[in-house]
Amino acid sequence: MQDALPPKLVCKGLNVSVRQELSRLWPRPLGANRRMITIRGVHKDFSIDGAKVTALSPTDLDVRRGEFVSIIGPSGCGKSTLLRILAGLETASGGSIDVDDGDRARQRVGFVFQEPVLLPWLSALENVRFPLDTARVARTEADSRALDLLKLVGLTGFEAALPRALSGGMRQRVSIARALSYDPSLLLMDEPFGALDLITRDRLNDELLSIWSQTKKTILFVTHSVEEAAYLSDRVVVMSPRPGRIKTVYDVNLPRPRGERTKLDPAFHQLMADLRRDLQ
């Protein structure tokens, strides 16, 4: 194993070494700092009317186990493409992805879409249980896990509600609980709160951090929001469009747990300013 390698970032021949954090105020779970995802030269091209279009130019990225990494960038920078390739929803035109998932071969990855993508004829509980039902997990076990997860996302009492009876924020919580139901070690989130109002979004950001610290998942989080990226992440990957590529990677050294105090921290505002400038 190539443990404790300094995370390295290569884009378009440019080598950017990212300083490894020596101390963290937030205790990391066991096995933290072990590299979990190794992305090397992954790119995506497709052709429109015979013309080659590059959605993602060759990209290198490493993600450590238990890390919270945000990917931010304007539309068309390939951030969603990268996430979808990782999830197996799209195939890369080349490059390699290595996900070290221990002995859990053929593990299903957790994925949260921008829309909740709930099945409208199933109750909240049945939606959370859906991945377990299709994997033929015993009903009693599936039920108890789904109930725990609904509790984790703060939806106790809404088990029997159909999606149409839930608010946008609640639906997205059900969606998160569903993605966690089969206990994936990697959770990919594609602008999960992009369609929600700001108040709901702030609350869900805090809940996501609490879920992350309780479940110790590795999270890759695609967003349009500078504040969201800075507030949530251990690292922020800034991408730029045409062709989509990684521009800069920021370490976020804000203390955890994060909360209202983080939002008053000058370092937080400095980071947001840096990110904004980078996105210009």
Partner: peptide, 24 residues
């Protein structure tokens, strides 16, 4: 599309996709 993606993510087979997602 996202519902088809969901089927892919959850490794559903053709029958499960039909019975659990497409038919309803």
């Amino acid at each position: 599309r996202p519902y088809q993606d969901l089927g892919t993510l959850l490794h559903l087979n053709a029958w499960q996709r039909f019975r659990r997602i497409e038919l309803p």
